[in-house]
Design a protein around this nucleic acid. Structure first.
Lengths: 310, 310
DNA sequence: TTACGGGCACAACTAATGGTTGTGGCTCGC
DNA sequence: GCGAGCCACAACCATTAGTTGTGCCCGTAA
């Protein structure tokens, strides 16, 4: 199926004749006729009945028409997603399973008219900031671990997410039936978070968290995927892991896993939206406004955040 | 943008190399390379970075990938909509603004996984039945005005819609503030329903309705579109028109029009789903079940239906 | 009835495209 | 340093998509 032929089909359906459609596409009537004939051959179905005064859609043509329009719309969107200059808002997230990605999905649902592309650069903060500076992405979510004065002058940041944590355990774990749990109660429990890059901001965060409360957090070791981790947790009375409260890391239901909020204090993973000051993309402002409106009010709650000493 | 190139792009993104993607598509590595190069030229953007061990997506490639997948999906659907043998369920409705079309939309929303195409044959009952017999459409909605024994043997019908009526009037009309209205109260009010084909089942219905209650219903005369009709109604203290209760003929709000239910008795426009007995399309059964579940219970209500004498 | 005009399809030709094979260069790993 | 694996470029060829020229059909008006 050829997109140009589809475009010709739609033009002809709108015009009611090949002549005019051809003119609109700056080709000859014969070329339009050929395109349609080719499309009809591709689909092995007749799309138009030829009359003396032009053409009329067949039933098949009628059924095909909305699909054809949709196809052209999607093609335009695909094109717009990369067209330099006026492409869709492109936001980098660390992982598609954590809070930023979830919030972006909510944003997209709230504003379906905004073209949004979510990408994962799999870069560290510095690399992501470089991508923002270069303009390959419009914004990124990261914990900003360095003082503001060390950031490039063109970069702006805003703290938009305070992600709280939940302990994920199997039904046999001693904490399985707790309503909430404090960091202090996690001492001597083994917390397992495999698959984390040792140099990453994540690893640094959990190392500092472990140090602050005297916890045992294994961030080292290969990951064999979430399914494997979930299966291990489900069977174990000792293993537990920490997940972001809004992460969709896991579907605990299928393994009867429990998500237990951690509080008193709440360990907060702080994330900022990072963008370039001179970025005039209209959707960027709307994203910032949306994220601001979604920010939880944690005043009056005892929280813990790291100091990012390395 | 060429769909084959897009397909190659997706295959290469999945495989991580051109070689394997090419093999999957039964072309040479060089052809795949050319296709991608062509696509990159079309979009004037680089989609892959070439490495010694294959290829990796650029940020633009990452952003483009989901759009590319969607494009192929939509293309498949478009193809399936007309592919003989296993096409989408195709249902004919008289008009996209009356109850059958509204119900089909509800059905589609309730079962988004079912491929459904709504077409308008603009044929009379006999023509629509012929189309059903020929298999160009799977089903049609019509008032069945002939006795069952006159229908072709392969045709099945089921009464699925009892459409009630509402009087549509402007704010200056004497009935504008009525909660409900009876047919008897409409005597001597002028009811205007322009744009109706004199030979159609609709015209026959309203002629019989008028005769039964002594009403004045003008079904003759050209229609200048709904906007024009609405504007006339809005300004007039005499004109009124009848619309189906579930039709989306008009957006009365914009003209401060009122929709007043007609009852005691309720004039019912009965519509049947018409299909071919040997049609094994799986979605057809589900549509019938859905329509059955949506049918209003009118027992205990005084109704009026025509006898379709011509 | 006939003549005309508008519109689509077929034929012939040409330019461009998309495919193939052959080959060279790059990078990684041994 | 060398071979293996993979991509890009070149040359060539077959097919396609476009153009112009022309014929046919059908509805309308003389």
């Amino acid at each position: 199926m050829d997109l140009e032929a589809v475009r010709t089909f739609v033009a002809a359906a709108d015009a009611g004749q090949f002549q005019e459609a051809a003119a609109a596409l700056s080709i000859t009537q014969q070329a339009a006729s050929k395109r349609i004939a080719g499309l009809e051959k591709d689909l092995s179905v007749r799309l138009f009945t030829r009359t003396a005064r032009g053409v009329a859609l067949t039933v098949d043509g009628q059924a095909f028409l909305p699909h054809a329009r949709e196809l052209l719309r999607v093609a335009d969107r695909a094109d717009a997603s990369v067209r330099p200059g006026r492409r869709a808002l492109r936001v980098d997230v660390h992982s598609r399973r954590v809070a930023p990605a979830v919030l972006l999905e909510d944003f997209y649902r709230a504003h379906p008219e905004i073209d949004l592309d979510v990408v994962t650069l799999t870069a560290d903060v510095a690399g992501a900031i470089a991508a923002v500076e270069a303009g390959t992405v419009d914004a990124t979510f990261h914990a900003v671990t360095m003082p503001a004065r060390d950031l490039p002058a063109t970069i702006r940041t805003a703290r938009v997410i305070d992600e709280t944590h939940e302990l994920l355990v199997g039904p046999a774990h001693p904490l399985a039936n707790a309503r909430t749990v404090t960091p202090a109660r996690l001492v001597r429990h083994r917390i397992w978070m495999p698959g984390m890059d040792p140099g990453s901001e994540w690893a640094a965060y959990y190392a500092e968290l472990a140090a602050a409360f005297g916890l045992t957090i294994d961030v080292i070791g290969p990951s064999f995927g979430n399914e494997s981790l979930m299966a291990e947790l489900a069977d174990s009375a000792e293993l537990a892991t920490l997940v972001g409260a809004r992460s969709r890391y896991l579907w605990p239901d299928s393994y009867d896993l429990r998500r237990i909020p951690v509080r008193d204090p709440m360990p907060i993973y702080p994330m900022s939206l990072i963008w370039r000051a001179d970025n005039r993309h209209p959707a960027l402002g709307r994203l910032r406004a949306y994220l601001g409106s979604r920010r939880a009010d944690l005043s009056g709650t005892e929280v813990w955040t790291p100091r990012w000493r390395r």
